[in-house]
Amino acid sequence: MLRKVTLLAAALLLVGGPAMAAAKAHEPEPVAFSFEGPFGRFNQVQLQRGYKVYREVCSSCHSMTLLAFRNLGDPSGPFFDPEYSAEKGLTSNDNPVVKALAADTQIPDLDGETGDPITRPGIPADRFPSPFPNIIAAKASNGGIAPPDLSLMAKAREGGPEYIASLLQGYGPPEHGVTLAPGQHYNKYFPGGVIGMAPPLAVDKVSFDDGTKSTVKQQAEDVAAFLMWAAEPKMEERKKMGFSVLIFLVLFSGMLYASYRRVWKNESH
């Protein structure tokens, strides 16, 4: 709250002030995501597209170690199917789409008899496989800086999904005075402007199964929505429960107030 107040006050102070120094990163562009607001929900089709962008583009460098394939079929997840829910006595493990997505990947494991390292097709209980076997390999392949894990990215950056969506579209020629070393790129939304990640998205780089036009903006916003879901998979449950709790508390407070007035009605105070 205090941070919000601070931001607000800073914004007010800014009104009369001159332009910010060039080194400051641009504020992310606002995006009207479906999950915003007290009743906002994830758009399942968008999450499916976002997963495809992650799987086909991001996952070649970025891990998502906190996510398991089964999560994709959890309630409010991209491939949730009410046929495979707790109400039917089943779980997302039984969801055939989830099984197929898991089986599409190769999971490093140990051979049960020889103990040799092997890879096998994934099962829903498996976590998303990482592109690099360890952090040293991740650093070595990426100019000394490991690509961050994306599991919590939408909560781990100021601006959240809007920042991600802006960043993915924010590449361009360097602004005045910024010099780039080989392997560096200019991105106006990235703090400092110099980023190691090459522009990851391009028109039609990912073909969407639902026929949505595959623009860079579309891909960026879809993957940002997917990452928000990945970071906060219980958001819909949370808001839903919050609504009931608030209704209860407001009614309860009203009753207590009436009770309080009743008790005190003959006492001046």
Binding site: M1, L2, R3, K4, P38, P148, L152, K155, A156, R157, E158, G160, A231, R238, K239, M241, G242, F243, V245, L246, L249
Partner: peptide
């Protein structure tokens, strides 16, 4: 409840999710 259900991370800091 408003904080808990609708802005649970508003009082925290984004960097603590790294």
């Amino acid at each position: 409840a408003v904080f808990l259900f609708y802005m649970p991370n508003a009082l925290g800091h984004a960097d603590n999710y790294i």
